[in-house]
Computed example of a mutant assay.
Amino acid sequence: MTFTCFFGYGSLVNRRTHGYTGARRAAARGWRRAWRYTADREVAFLTVIPDPACTIDGLVASVPADAWPTLDLREHAYERLDARDSVTDAGDGHPAIYAIAADRLNTPDDHHPVLLSYLDVVVQGYLTEYGRDGAARFFATTTGWEAPILDDRAAPRYPRAQDLSEGERAFVDRYLQTLNCRIIA
């Protein structure tokens, strides 16, 4: 199958984490984000799971044919799936969406937490692309907030960590508090 673009719904929404030009806002129907982990990574990260009643915001960006191996390496814990029937605003492109295989999904725990530095990058992307309302939709269309969240801001473990403004950090912290998330050191 020949894909021409990706639909990003996590860190790929933050343009500072990649060099794909021409990215534009889009949505994917029939998917919901979830925090999960696999044996491929020590920490939990976002994936999509089927949910016919949900639509998630994200970005679509073209990928040159010779750049797919690099993107696949970045997204090595995922399978690349056909998203042509669910992604809006892909134009004439044939979008792929990355998802963890259903038989490899594990619920995060204290040994496999969500990195706050990763969450910060994702939310920064949504704030930039969609504003506060769009970032609020990110939280609302993501499940798994009972996962422990490792506060690694002082020494980020996420390889594409970004500096956040005071307002961006406060936005993330406020939502985590509202959702009664458990922050671990």
Rank of each mutant, 00 (worst) to 15 (best):
A170C: 09
R153D: 00
P148K: 09
V122G: 04
A101R: 14
A102N: 09
F139P: 07
V114H: 01
A136K: 12
A140E: 15
R169W: 10
V172M: 08
D173K: 10
A155F: 12
A135R: 07
R153W: 04
R132L: 00
G125C: 12
A101F: 00
V121D: 03
D151P: 03
T143A: 12
A136L: 13
T128A: 15
A147Q: 09
Q162G: 02
L127D: 00
V122E: 03
V172K: 01
G134Y: 05
L164D: 01
P113C: 04
H112T: 07
Y118A: 04
P108A: 03
R157I: 12
V172W: 06
G167D: 15
D152L: 01
A102L: 10
L127I: 02
A136G: 08
G125Y: 10
P159Q: 01
Y158S: 04
P148C: 06
Y126W: 08
V123Q: 02
L116T: 02
V121T: 13
D173C: 07
T107Y: 04
Y130Q: 05
R169C: 12
E168A: 13
V172L: 08
V121C: 07
S165F: 04
V121F: 01
V114D: 05
G125V: 13
R160D: 13
R137K: 13
S165V: 06
T143V: 15
A99D: 03
Q162F: 01
Q124K: 14
V121A: 08
Y118P: 03
L105S: 03
R169T: 07
D110M: 05
T141G: 05
D109F: 00
P156T: 04
Y118I: 05
A161R: 06
T143I: 15
T143N: 00
F138T: 06
T128K: 14
R157Y: 05
E168G: 01
T143P: 04
I100T: 10
R157G: 14
G167K: 14
T107G: 01
E168Q: 07
V172Y: 07
R153M: 04
F139W: 12
S117W: 01
I100P: 04
Y126F: 15
A135N: 06
F139I: 08
R160F: 13
T107V: 13
A101L: 07
A140C: 10
G134E: 09
H112W: 07
P159R: 02
R104T: 09
T141M: 12
H111S: 15
D109R: 11
D152R: 02
D163I: 09
F139H: 08
Y126Q: 11
A140W: 04
T107K: 09
T107I: 13
A147T: 14
R157A: 14
T141K: 11
Y158K: 08
P159Y: 02
Q162P: 00
A154E: 09
E166P: 07
A136S: 06
D152Y: 03
T107P: 02
